[in-house]
Design a protein around this nucleic acid. Structure first.
Lengths: 242, 242
DNA sequence: CGGAGACTTGACTTATATCAAAGCGTGTGG
DNA sequence: CCACACGCTTTGATATAAGTCAAGTCTCCG
């Protein structure tokens, strides 16, 4: 009996016992029998920032759950202009069902830990457990809503509204347990100024200037470039441009 | 026996016989029995340009197939700034599964004909016919890919690249039967200059200037403001910015 | 024919990009 | 432990693509 196949008295594989994905992620739809089957094929990884997980137009043969950290999804024009088209946080599912190759790049923005499955195992699970497929469907719809929300931000907001919207989004995504009505927040930015610029369709200098302005206005504090304290969530919200 | 319940010898409801959605749309996944059940609750409409189909944050109690025409999906900031976040063509399915209220507005851009179903009938069909749910899932993923593709266009392309990309997208969407490698194309713009601007995150004057430039460069001709002939597809492609 | 809405074009403004230089912070090797 | 190098960030000066404002013109339709 290997460690991966080791079964707890409840019937849940030990690998899954401590996994957040088992509750809110797609695996939450699976009963112990299915979990055992999937866990047998699963493997955990930890990757450093900047590591490419999936290449645009590349054939993909595995899917993953994001267990911690942040993954950035990007698209690049031939002359190098880049746009981040989405971010994934735990316990998001990473991969494009029903397609041989990914339409986007995926890259670790921070240290990321993943639980990966062979493509075939996920395809089989989608057939065997309709509720599993349904969870993936629901995640795709949430990502679609998010993508459209960001289209408005990218297309119609000013630089200062964009940066405020970004900080608010991060504050709410990083720690989903935090009261959404909290007066203040505190987190490490998962992205560099350059990444934030690629997400908001700005230049890194513009992002920097807007952060400086928010700091001067007493809305936020920044330590060591990355650690942000939002002193006035309401002030931030007011700058998001309705 | 009503017209709607009338059954052709093949077992397919007459309402569905001539319907494009039955082949490439979600209904294509249904066998005659399921089609009969769904057709009983279906109703066809034709709406004029500008008619609001679904309001942002509004409760939705019906879903529709787009049978012809173009539907624009929009989001609006409180001060009126607007962004078109998607377009739907026949035989797309219109509506957000698994959610009480729509996160976006849907409005007819042209004359649109729809085949509408009560929400409950669609929910039931998703349970009864897994292949139907799977088609909706696949459409959601195609829309997600498209939304991300447009994020790049909106965020990182110049005004002239945006307008060229838009024309190319329309040329390919309006008539999906046309050879994608065709040297020229001809179609009616489904959107006004203002709508195109809302889609590309520009002003209508800028859209107009870029169209004028494409005309001056001999890439396109425009008659009566709406009817576009693309004389050089390759010229258009070259202006899309990789 | 006439009026309304959509479109074009021109002159000018502005937000953001671009270019350039200097400041931090972190990790490495002497 | 210091220094120095590299990548990230800040800040300033200037350029430019696109926005804004303002006439007009075109088309469709009653």
């Amino acid at each position: 009996m290997t460690a991966q196949q080791d079964i707890h008295s409840s019937g849940i594989p030990v690998l899954c016992l401590s996994c957040e994905g088992r509750h809110r992620g797609p695996c939450g739809a699976l009963d112990p029998d299915h979990l055992v089957g999937l866990a047998k094929t699963a493997s955990r990884h930890k990757v450093e920032p900047g590591v490419k997980l999936v290449g645009e137009a590349e054939t993909v043969d595995s899917y993953s759950n994001v267990l911690s950290g942040v993954v950035k999804l990007t698209k690049t024009l031939s002359d190098g202009r880049q746009q981040i088209v989405g971010l994934q946080f735990a316990p998001d599912f990473l991969g494009r069902p029903f397609k041989m190759d990914s339409p986007i790049n995926a890259e670790a923005a921070t240290v990321v830990s993943l639980c990966s499955f062979p493509k075939a195992a996920v395809v089989r699970m989608m057939k065997d457990a309709p509720e599993f497929e349904r969870r993936l469907f629901k995640q795709a719809l949430v990502e679609l809503d998010a993508a459209r929300e960001w289209m408005v931000t990218v297309g119609r907001k000013t630089a200062s509204e964009k940066v405020a919207s970004f900080l608010l989004m991060i504050a709410r995504s990083i720690d989903r347990t935090v009261d959404p009505a909290a007066k203040s927040a505190c987190f490490d930015l998962p992205l560099t100024r350059g990444d934030i610029a690629d997400f908001l369709a700005l230049r890194f200098e513009t992002v920097s200037r807007q952060l400086t302005r928010l700091r001067a206005d007493g809305i936020i504090r920044i330590e060591n470039n990355r650690h942000v304290t939002v002193d006035s969530m309401s002030g931030l919200e007011r700058r998001c441009g309705g």
